[in-house]
Design a protein around this nucleic acid. Structure first.
Lengths: 227, 227, 227, 227
DNA sequence: AATGAATGAGTGTTCATTCAT
DNA sequence: TATGAATGAACACTCATTCAT
């Protein structure tokens, strides 16, 4: 239908369209994150994307679809860095268990400093009655891969005798909870950002508790503090 | 519905008004919980409360005030049972540490089966950019008292040598995280209700991990499973 | 609920509302007649009625209801005069058959000079796929009573030997057709208005033909022309 | 669908274009008939014609032109069969006057069973304020030729003494009115289809009345019924 | 000649809020 | 105090039409 000369030509004619689609998705997420689904207005999304309102409807059928797709795209975009960071850290073999866990904890607390991540969670939470599938979309792009990777690593550590976690997946979930739970309180849904030393303390406390529970040997090293 | 004996009328001249106000607050929370702040419409709230729309405006200045007050009232109402339950359990001296913690865990997981609690959380989360104070209101009525009571108890246990938690507040936060974190995943923002045995398993795993980390003596009892 | 002192007071509080409702219905028919259902816009109807757009929606649920009700009201209003005129003429006993039929014919052709009647027909015809019930509404308010009254009269004439129509209803329908059929061609859906003598000629021709077919005796009066 | 033999291409370079134009006109009338002028949307017309929207604009300047041309084309197409049928019947010399008139009446009532004819009338009627010329277009393609042919025939019958109609055109118009008038009531703008015997009765009654009025001799044959 | 993409203008409808009673 | 009625402002969505290809 179009000129099919190999090379750059084939990629070109679509690029503008794809650019526009991405611009729409990005601005849609931005506006939805700021105002919520119901209060966001398509006109503002369009103007922020630099297109006319009907162009938005040419790409996405209606507001609900626009919402879903923008959240999905944002989940990928926002979740990717922390997922990659944790994966890289777990794949590299440098450092002992404690150091690695501390690193993972720092990765998580760093991720929570991203206001877009909170916006993403807020949206998925807020609209979970109208768009229940979003919870899965968001966790699949943010928590789930980390949980899985950490579970794998804990299994290996256990095999190597560096840890003794009967069920690595439960242990992984618990480690994440030990880090995220207390932090979620401090972040107050992303409306506050705790000081660096506060989140570091939470991470250290989580690692300490985790290692006391799952540490390799019941060594009698003194429990040197959980704060 | 109201006391209609003529004699009583003079005694409680305000009761009808207060009744009406409560009816408005209750139906407001119900509608807000169902539809979210922006999508909820005052007309529906009024009709569900059995009053006319302007009557709502006679009691609350505007929609935002109506929202805030209805959420505050609902937070008290919804949070109270689980707070009381946990407090009662911690105040009574029956049972050892493990039994008590298991009981608290069960209290928490029972509380999470209340769909109104999830609605409350969803609202606070959803509107946290427009109404940031709600996060505090909700946690103050639900989590905070439990955390504080548990912290107190852990302090006492530690003093008695039944536990060794350097910082009881951190330990309390971690216990709650160990219970709530994995469960939050299963509840999926209140859109799913996990089976009883699943949540019991989570609670047991949380207690096991917690006791391994903070248990009194470095006993050499085998770590018999974390699932 | 309102002061119920007998007399004028009870009628008052509603009159403003009813006035407004009527104003809306009248201006709605005017706009619908001018532009058709789809092209008419509620905003224009509202402003022509001197109210705000939402006021229209307070009285009628949606555009379709507004349309139906405005057409029904207009059918009563527009059909009444010609129906009354024909009824009055048929009820009064002055004049012989021919004179009376000529009078009825003139009544009909006078009615067709009312541009609102054509607008009414146009609307019922135009929207008969979306609003099929309108055909009945319009004919019931315009043609049907006339047909019935004329049928009754023809029956009486036949009984009195002044006419010999076996089936008076068929004869009535045929008389109306003889008058209206040729005139409809001349009026061209109300876009043209034929000269007075033209429509009088049509009426005379209709009466002549009708009387030749249903006249009392096979008199041998010459057929003096049908034009 | 199109002739693809390379040789033929040069011979009929326009045929594909004309095909496309016809497809557009046909689908346009179909959509206009279904939805009316204002509610019909060009996109649907284009897709039903199997072309893209701008292609429609390449052939017809705008929606109004598209409407006019599609109605004109449809008028020819839809009117032709009944016109031909009546003409053929009148041209053939078989049968006496009564038989022929009965046949013409049946032709007319058969034509009214074509839902497309009603759609055509509805459109012309509905949009007669915006497109007043359509009334002429439609009648010229449907009623007018029949009226003229019947007038001619009545003139001949009168000359031959088989009828005595002073003004054949008026008589023709009256015959058509006697048939169509009562039937139009039954068809209710094409929303209902009367039973065969009902329309046959109407036709017979019309012929009876017509012949009583214009029959050749003032014979004293009993008026045997007008129903 | 035909089309995918884009848009300005406009629609019906809803809602929070106010006023007169 | 409580309410029926009214409204200004806004929103999702559609459509006829044009432009670049």
């Amino acid at each position: 239908m179009t000129t099919d000369e190999p090379g750059v030509r084939t990629a070109r004619p679509m690029s503008g369209r794809i650019d526009k689609r991405n611009a729409i998705l990005v601005s849609a997420f931005s506006v939805f994150a700021r105002l919520g689904y119901a209060s966001a207005c398509v006109k503002e999304i369009a103007s922020e994307a630099g297109v006319a309102k009907p162009t938005v409807y040419n790409h996405m059928n209606d507001k609900a679809t626009l919402f879903r797709e923008s959240v999905e795209a944002a989940a990928e975009r926002i979740g990717a860095p922390s997922v990659s960071a944790v994966r890289a850290r777990l794949d590299s073999s440098v450092g002992d268990v404690e150091t690695t866990l501390l690193g993972v904890g720092e990765d998580l607390s760093a991720a929570m400093r991203d206001s877009e991540l909170w916006a993403l969670r807020r949206l998925a939470c807020a609209e979970s009655s109208q768009f229940p599938e979003l919870h899965h979309v968001v966790t699949a792009a943010t928590e789930a891969p980390i949980r899985r990777a950490l579970g794998d690593k804990i299994a290996r550590w256990t095999l190597r005798g560096e840890l003794r976690a009967q069920d690595p997946d439960v242990a992984a979930a618990q480690f994440l909870a030990l880090v995220a739970g207390p932090l979620e309180f401090d972040f107050a849904q992303g409306t506050r950002i705790p000081a660096d030393d506060r989140s570091s303390a939470v991470v250290r406390a989580a690692v300490t508790t985790f290692l006391r529970a799952f540490g390799p040997a019941p060594t009698d090293r003194e429990p040197t503090g959980s704060s």
